[in-house]
Design a protein around this nucleic acid. Structure first.
Length: 939
RNA sequence: GGGUUGUUAGCUCAGUUGGCUAGAGCGUCUCGUUUACACCGAGAAGGUCGGGGGUUCGAGCCCCUCACAACCCACCA
């Protein structure tokens, strides 16, 4: 027996994946290698190449990690696309990747080090790099196995690791180009610095959290005494209270701060130029408390008159805004905090204290001097390291920066030229908005795990004519010599986003010399949360390096939330592991489940229920196939015994042979020999067959349209409905009488192929189990439209209406098992008369007879059919109330329709076909009411 | 402060240029074990589409407004 009674994914999935992988079907059919094979300088494949190719690169999962639910969604989306376009005949290339995940991996590794009682500072950069490399190598493989379990049909031989040689090469090439173009510069700027991890971050890597804090008010006293006390009003500002005259004789300013310890690095006090209170003070000097320095009062827009006292201390070395104020006014930057969070460059009593200790002492000392004038509890947002939660310390550092303005401007140009289509559409505006406000990009990271920055600093002071920094690719060396001058390598590594922004370029092996039909990518599919960090940078870098946008379309998925719509997190304990679900319900079930109810860019809930419904569909399809195979087997058996003519005794009911299309006139063709898919010729022999062909064609159109618009959920929904509600519940039920084997085979193949992108394993398992199919379904051809007779198909809808109404009526009658008790009577109804067997099978009534004499029994509520349930008088009268209710209900519908027609504007202005439809409906309802009333009179 | 997205059945969500009685899955209830499937079949209940206004013959959909929710960016001395 080929088919067991239920589908057990565990029995098939790994074997099937292994067979696919071994046979090379994951690889694209058109080579991506240089294609000028005949050496004539003309690309042999260029013509039409890109239109026959389809390419997706996988956002590389962390090489040493496990896949989470987001990866599960990613693979479900990307692999569905790849498989779909592969079936559609494209040379599909799904390029897998693995990410060295610079910082993420580093954090994990550093924890390991700590566990063994070591710190990073015991080793050189190169030692650490080698050590992490081994660490990752040991872990690698897990996530690749998990990708296989999810069914990812990616070309494994093309897997790109973000530290592969060609990646580093390209990154250095770009770096050099940017350096030569003046787009990379070294600057001393404030960077987001995590004192725990000892590294800087880009702005987007910092998390802001609202926290309670304290706003302290500190008095800064003027050095010179202002002019006379009376004529110009009070000489103290804000709420400065009385003070002992002997200490100083002038006015003062009260500044507000949440970080009193940075006071020691103050270089000015700023007030708003329009602030009347302070106008006269601009240009004067105040004495900086505790530090005994004199600093100026300057005018700057940064000071908000509404906030605090309106006067703000300026510490350019430790605050981003102050840094900018300092730039504008040419102020010094006095750094007072070291990278490990200790005070330096300050009076002795504060030296070496941590920032927290220093804050306490500063406040205490200020209080003792009577300069602490107040404190307020406030809530403000504070920057944290997104990994460890440590408060970010803005730190003055020399770093490498990318001047992003020209890159962003170019990106905007291409976007406004509609070169990239976004799903969802609105993200295009969001990203343009981002490009418009982008600040220079700090690409230096102080972690050893990453691509070394290819810059070397001159250490030979005598060579004054040589530049301080030179570019060189030899980052394997710590020191190099050029023209007799010695240079030392920058210790830092480059931000991972700098290298990841090359992903479409490096994973497709793009080169400037050769035409590459896979670049730009057909689509970039990734999470909406890294629109800025990754997508934006890929666009800038793609254009900068290749002159072209790196992808034609972008599909962004949202977050997968838990079943209550809450973000998954370890601390909440609501994390769903995709592999658990795959093990429990199968890969297909997971894929179908996670695609359900999901749309572009939206954060959406996910629960096991949706996976269960996917599992059920797989099992349903399995059993559908099992039935069809058994029918095919049976018919082959019969064929062997008797002459094929006898089989044609299965007559076609309710169908005029004169309408038979050419294809159908051939008569039933029994195909026993193995045939390739889509070669099975068939003939429709009854209405159900025409109808299912029509429905499958519609399904096909819908799936094609949905896939074009990235409406995965809709495609799956359509298939689910067609397979279950239409194919199984109606068509197959009707085939229990007719058994048109070639058609069954043909339609099953169509459905299997259409579902394959979403449920690759079960469809392949079935394909391999069916007796008449060859090869892999994975490399089959997308089905052709089925031929059918539309009139006949429409007739089947009438049968469905009749059957449904009979079923409903039977269920609403008193008692149970009514379908077995009562037969049907028909009067002068050719559709019923010609389809007795079909209606009997579908309704399960014991018998259907022609009505003789006066109508009796219970009239079925159908407008155009004379059909009665043969029930006793007593049952009919018990049905009286239900009938009355029904008449009222139909009456209400009729009234609503009539009201619409009574409105002259409707009849006049609405499209004519709608008006006609309404009129037809009115007639139908009216007829139905008449019949029901007849019935009521009878009771 | 700037921007984006939601609010439709008990739950999670569809509903694409405005058009018949607003759909699905899961859940609930009733009936049924008929040799493809109980991971099943047949049927049912359940919605004033967040509130209010407007445009229109016609609004879940378009416009205005309010409320609530979520997210992103900037700022918070």
């Amino acid at each position: 027996m080929r088919f067991s009674s239920s589908y057990e994914p565990g029995e098939f999935e790994s074997d099937i994946y292994g067979a696919w992988e071994a046979s090379g079907v994951f690889e694209p059919t058109i080579s991506s290698l240089p294609s000028d094979n005949d050496g004539d300088g003309i690309d042999d494949r260029k013509e039409g190449g890109a239109t026959n190719t389809y390419s997706i690169v996988m956002p590389p999962p962390n090489a040493n990690g496990n896949l989470h639910i987001g990866h599960g969604l990613t693979v479900a989306l990307e692999d569905s696309l790849i498989r779909y376009y592969r079936l559609r005949g494209k040379s599909a290339w799904y390029i897998p990747g693995a990410d060295h995940a610079g910082f993420e991996t580093w954090v994990v590794y550093e924890k390991e080090l700590e566990k063994h009682g070591h710190t990073r500072f015991e080793y050189t950069r190169d030692e650490l790099y080698a050590s992490v490399w081994n660490f990752v190598a040991e872990q690698r493989g897990n996530m690749e196995l998990q990708l296989r379990a999810l069914g990812a049909s990616c070309s494994w031989r093309d897997l790109t690791f973000t530290l592969d040689e060609n990646v580093i090469d390209q990154v250095y090439t770009t770096f050099e180009k940017m350096w030569n173009d003046g787009l990379i510069y070294r600057g001393e700027k404030l960077v987001n610095f995590c004192p725990k991890h000892q590294t800087a971050f880009a702005d987007i890597e910092v998390e802001y959290k609202d926290e309670p804090g304290t706003l302290w008010e500190i008095e800064y006293r003027l050095v010179e005494e202002p002019a006379g006390p009376s004529s110009e009003g009070p000489k103290t500002w804000a709420s400065a209270p009385e003070r002992p005259e002997e200490e100083w004789s002038g006015g003062s300013l009260i500044v507000s701060t949440t970080r009193p310890e940075t006071l020691l690095g103050d270089v000015a006090v700023a007030v708003n130029p329009d602030d009347a209170r302070y106008k006269d003070l601009i240009g004067k000097m105040v004495k900086l408390p505790l530090a005994n320095r004199e600093i100026p009062i300057i005018a700057d827009e940064h000071a908000d008159p509404e906030y605090g006292t309106g006067a703000v201390k300026i510490t350019p070395a430790h605050d981003f805004d102050d840094f900018e104020v300092g730039e504008r006014h040419g102020l010094l930057r006095i750094q007072v905090i070291t990278e490990d969070g200790k005070m330096f460059n300050v009076p002795e009593e504060y030296y070496g204290l941590t920032t927290a200790e220093c804050r306490k002492k500063v406040l205490k000392d200020l209080k003792n001097q009577g300069l602490l004038k107040g404190e307020k509890k406030i809530s403000h947002s504070v920057a944290h390291c997104y990994k460890c939660g440590t408060t970010i310390e803005p730190m003055l550092k020399e770093q490498w920066f990318v001047d992003v303005k020209p890159l962003a401007a170019e990106a905007i140009k291409h976007l406004e030229n509609d070169e990239i289509k976004f799903f969802p559409e609105n993200k295009k505006h969001v990203i343009i908005n981002y490009f418009n406000n982008l600040k220079d990009w700090n690409i230096s990271r102080q972690i050893p795990w990453g691509i070394a920055i290819p810059m070397f600093r001159k250490i030979d002071d005598r060579a004054t004519d040589e530049p301080d920094w030179i570019f060189d690719r030899r980052t394997n060396l710590q020191e190099i010599e050029k023209a007799g001058v010695k240079y030392i390598r920058d210790e830092d590594t480059v931000d991972t986003w700098f290298s990841s922004s090359h992903w479409p370029i490096v994973s497709t092996n793009w080169t400037p010399e050769n035409y590459n039909p896979y670049y730009p990518l057909s689509v970039m599919e990734t999470g909406a949360d890294i629109l800025f960090a990754w997508v934006a940078r890929m666009i800038m870098m793609g254009i900068y390096v290749t002159g072209e946008v790196p992808f034609k379309e972008v599909y962004l998925h949202g977050l997968v939330l838990d079943e209550h719509g809450k973000k998954m997190s370890k601390s909440k304990g609501n994390v769903i592991n995709p592999m658990d679900l795959v093990t429990k319900y199968g890969s297909d079930a997971f894929r179908l489940g996670i695609l359900r109810g999901r749309s572009a860019g939206m954060n959406q809930a996910f629960s096991e229920n949706s996976v269960i419904s996917g599992r059920n569909l797989c099992n349903k399809l399995w059993n559908i196939s099992r039935l069809i195979q058994s029918i095919a087997d049976e018919s082959a058996e019969v064929d062997r015994e008797i002459d094929s003519e006898v089989l044609e005794t299965v007559s076609r009911e309710g169908y005029d042979p004169s309408e038979v299309s050419e294809a159908r006139n051939d008569g039933p063709e029994r195909t026993r020999s193995k045939k390739l898919q889509s070669n099975l010729s068939y003939t429709t022999l009854n209405m159900g067959e025409d109808w299912i062909c029509r429905e499958i064609n519609q399904c096909m159109e819908q799936v094609e349209k949905s896939m074009k618009d990235y409406r995965f959920s809709e495609a799956v929904e359509t298939l689910y409905q067609t397979i279950w509600d239409k194919y199984a519940d109606w068509f197959l039920e009707s085939q229990k009488i007719y058994k048109n084997v070639p058609l069954l085979q043909n339609t099953l193949e169509s459905l299997l192929i259409m579902l394959h992108p979403f449920a690759p394993f079960v469809t392949e398992a079935i394909w391999q189990s069916l007796s008449w199919t060859n090869g892999f379904i994975m490399t089959a051809k997308w089905p052709m439209k089925l031929k059918y007779d539309p009139i006949s198909a429409e007739q089947f809808e009438n049968i469905r209406t009749i059957v449904s109404e009979v079923r409903t009526t039977l269920q609403s009658l008193p008692g149970t098992n009514n379908a077995k008790k009562y037969g049907l009577l028909y009067d002068n109804d050719s559709l019923v008369k010609d389809n007795l067997l079909l209606i009997k099978t579908l309704t399960k009534v014991p018998e259907i007879n022609a009505l003789e004499g006066a109508p009796r029994g219970l009239r079925v509520a159908l407008a155009n059919h004379e059909l009665f349930l043969d029930v006793p008088e007593k049952v009919v009268s018990e049905y009286r109330d239900a009938l009355t209710e029904k008449i009222l209900a139909v009456g209400r519908e009729l009234d609503a329709l009539n009201a619409r027609l009574m409105n002259p504007s409707y009849v006049e202005k609405a499209p004519q076909h709608l008006v006609k439809e309404t009129r037809d409906l009115v007639n139908e309802k009216a007829a139905l009411i008449d019949r029901l009333k007849l019935q009521l009179d009878l009771i």
